[in-house]
Design a binder for these strands. Structure first.
Lengths: 206, 206
DNA sequence: GTCTATAATGAGATAGAC
DNA sequence: GTCTATCTCATTATAGAC
C-alpha cells in the first residue's frame, strides 16, 4: 500500500523532516511569494539538500499547498469561536484580540495568506468561495441579529468583519512599514491590542 | 550628450512606448510581485518584443524602480493635503475619502506597494524611512495637537494613520477576497466609502 | 533516507540584421 | 527602433550511487 496524499508522516523521522521543511517553506514563501521563492532558499533554511526536499514533497507546488491547507483552519478558528450565546460586544472584542494575537504570533502565516489574495487567490479560490464565504455569511447573519436587537450599532456586517481583518492583519503584513514609522522603542502589537480594543468599543456602541 | 536616467522620453514615440511598457509592467508586477513577474509576460501585455522592452529600460529592475518612484508621490499627496488650517474632522474624513478613491481608481498601484512592503520593503526602505517617516511624524504632531485642543478623541496618532491605510487599502489589496464575500451584486468601493466615513466619524468624536 | 551529478526548462539580457 | 536568434545563468526536477 502506497502512501496517500502529499505529506507522508509514516515514521518519526519523516514527520520531523516534513515539519522542518514546511517551517522553512513558510519562512521563504511568506516573504517572496510562490514564484519568488526558490527551492535553494528553502533547502538552505531547512538545512537539507534540495533533492531531499523533493523526497518529502513531490513538488514546490505541493509544499505551498500543504502550507495553505494547514493555514486555513488556524485562520478561521477565531471567527468560528464567535458565539451567538455570548455578550455581543465581548464576543467581537474577543475576536479582535485573538486576531491581534495571531498577527503577533504567526506573522508569516498572515503574509503567506496576504500574498495569495494579492495575486487573486489562484491557489485558494475554492476555499475562499466555499468554506470562508459560508462562515462569513453565517457570522454576518449573527452580527445582523445583534444589530436588529440593538446590542451593537447598525452597520454592514460584512464590512465590520473586513475592518477586523484589515486592522489586525495590517500589523503583520505591513510590519516593515509599521516599525519604520514607530521607531525602535515601540511594541507595535501591544499598542495595536489596546488601540483596536478602544476603536471597536466606540464603533460598536449603539 | 547621452540621455540621463532610466526612462528616456526624448521623442514622442519614445515617451509613448515608455508609457506603454510601464503600464504593462504595473499590471504584471502588481499581480505577481517582482520576482514572480517575467519580461515575457510584460512584453505580451505591452504588445512589444522582449528586446524592445530592454531598449527602453536597461533591466527588469529598472522598470520596477521607475514604477515605485512614480508611485510614491501619488501615494503621499493625499496625506500632504491634510492641513492644519482646516477643520480637524473634515480634514481627516477628506483624507479617508481620497484614500478610498485611490484604492478604487489605482488598485494596481496599491498592490504593487503592498507586495513591496510585504517583502520587507527591500527596494523602498530608503523612501519609507526617509520621506514617508518625515511626513508621518509631521502629521502625527498635527493630529496630536488636535487631540490636545479637544477637537478629536485622544488616541495614538500613528495608529490612527495606520487605521486609515489599513482600512482603505484593504479594499484594493484584498479585492479578490472582498468580492468573493460580498457576491456580484455589491460595489465594494461605494459601500466602503460610506462605511468608513461613518466609522471614522464615530472614532474621532471626542 | 540522503547525497552528488545532471537533465530540462525558464528567464534576463545581448548580438546583429533589417 | 524593432525584430529574430542566441547566450548564459538560475531553477525545478530526476537519476542513480551510497
Amino acid at each position: 500500500m502506497t502512501s496517500g496524499a502529499t505529506p507522508k508522516p509514516r515514521t518519526r523521522i519523516q514527520a520531523r523532516n516534513s515539519e522542518t521543511i514546511l517551517e522553512a517553506a513558510l519562512e521563504v514563501f511568506s516573504t517572496y511569494g510562490f514564484r519568488g521563492a526558490t527551492l535553494d532558499q528553502i533547502a538552505e533554511v531547512a538545512g537539507l539538500s534540495k533533492p531531499n526536499l523533493l523526497y518529502y514533497f513531490p513538488s514546490k507546488e505541493a509544499m505551498h499547498q500543504a502550507l495553505l491547507t494547514r493555514l486555513l483552519s488556524t485562520w478561521l478558528d477565531p471567527l468560528r469561536d464567535v458565539k451567538a450565546s455570548g455578550d455581543p460586544v465581548t464576543e467581537i472584542l474577543g475576536y479582535v484580540r485573538r486576531k491581534v494575537e495571531l498577527s503577533r504570533d504567526y506573522p508569516r502565516e498572515s503574509r503567506l495568506f496576504a500574498n495569495e489574495i494579492l495575486q487573486g487567490a489562484p491557489r485558494m479560490r475554492e476555499a475562499i468561495e466555499g468554506e470562508l464565504k459560508t462562515l462569513v455569511d453565517e457570522k454576518s447573519a449573527l452580527l445582523q441579529s445583534w444589530m436588529d436587537q440593538g446590542s451593537i450599532a447598525r452597520m454592514p456586517p460584512a464590512h465590520l468583519i473586513f475592518s477586523i481583518w484589515a486592522l489586525t492583519q495590517h500589523y503583520a503584513d505591513f510590519d516593515a512599514q509599521v516599525r519604520a514609522m514607530l521607531g525602535p522603542d515601540h511594541d507595535p502589537f501591544t499598542e495595536a491590542g489596546d488601540y483596536l480594543d478602544t476603536l471597536f468599543r466606540k464603533l460598536l456602541a449603539p
